[in-house]
């Protein structure tokens, strides 16, 4: 493995250095900001959190907190771009070999192309896992700091924790396979980006429907939804207990239904993180399988 890592680092030096610098800057920014926000919370704990007691100084403290909080939001949005790491590392792995002609010699030498690809991709996969795990943990801490120590539940759900890592791995796998199919680095980078957006959107739609089936019905109104919950839809509960979409209550007499919301509670967040993680793993597995099947049939030119 050490040999593969050393070879992969040299073959993709430019990508590794560029990604390393960008990630380091992002990581340091997140860590510094988390520390700064935690210090502000520590100085005036009564002003933060759902169960805060409040106090006369709190409006000024909350105002001061708003600046770092906005920066934190921007940084967390940047986490959405981190699958790009998987694409930048993954797309050239096979595409460059084919484009430059080295695949002809390497594949002729290799006893098994599959083993070659696993050896060649493993360092990139490890790099993606380690880098994005650190970022996922840092983003998790930053989210908790923004909430004054309250459990984040579904807040910034897709921008922290293991999902960040698994989305990066899916990007890596997808871009390796697209690079193998196209045999050109630049088109592979572009197509992999488009394909990843589409795949994630498709997964998002599927997960959205799945979540609805797991949602609880809470009466519409102030205090009905706990912080960290996610509201999936506004519905109406009819007198017989059936639930209908809100737009189907037009024409129904007042009082024959009550407004309600479909909600996933914060306590369900970890279960949904696991389910989304499993979907990403399964998708990555399916793409990998298709890629490995395709590899044995791919011409090296």
């Amino acid at each position: 493995m050490r040999d593969w890592v050393s070879l992969a680092a040299r073959l993709q030096r430019f990508e590794v250095v560029t990604i390393g610098i960008v990630l380091l800057v992002l990581l340091v920014a997140v860590v510094i900001l988390t520390g700064q926000m935690q210090a502000m919370i520590g100085a005036d704990p009564a002003c933060f959190g759902a169960a805060s007691a409040g106090g006369p100084q709190c409006p000024d403290v909350i105002d001061a907190f708003a600046g770092p909080d906005q920066i934190a939001e921007v940084l967390l949005r940047l986490v959405w771009l981190t699958p790009g790491i998987g694409i930048i590392l993954g797309a050239p792995i096979v595409a460059r070999e084919i484009e430059s002609g080295t695949a002809q010699i390497t594949w002729a030498l290799a006893n098994s192309r599959v083993r070659w690809l696993i050896g060649r991709s493993a360092p990139a996969a490890v790099a993606v896992i380690v880098a994005l795990a650190l970022l996922g943990i840092a983003a998790d801490s930053l989210t908790q700091a923004r909430l004054g120590g309250d459990p984040p539940g579904f807040i910034a759900f897709d921008q922290r924790g293991p999902i960040v890592v698994l989305r990066g791995l899916l990007a890596l796998v997808l871009s390796v396979v697209i690079g193998m199919r196209l045999g050109r680095v630049l088109p592979a980078l572009m197509l992999a980006t488009v394909a990843l957006v589409l795949v994630l959107a498709f997964i998002g739609l599927g997960i959205g429907s799945w979540r609805t089936s797991d949602a609880a019905i809470r009466p519409f109104g102030r205090g009905a939804v706990l912080p960290g919950s996610v509201v999936l839809d506004v519905v109406a509960v009819l007198a017989d207990g059936s639930v209908v979409a809100e737009d189907r209550t037009d024409g129904l007499p007042e009082g024959s239904f009550t407004d309600a919301v479909l909600v996933l509670e914060p306590a369900q967040a970890s279960s949904w993180m696991l389910r989304e993680a499993l979907v990403l793993v399964a998708t990555s597995g399916a793409v990998s399988f298709a890629g490995l099947w395709r590899l044995s049939r791919r011409r090296p030119i």
Partner: peptide, 16 residues
């Protein structure tokens, strides 16, 4: 794979 060796025209090596 164990049987055949191959040298292509203008063989490309890894410049890195």
């Amino acid at each position: 794979s164990g049987l055949v060796g191959y040298v292509p025209q203008s063989p490309a090596l890894y410049p890195e």
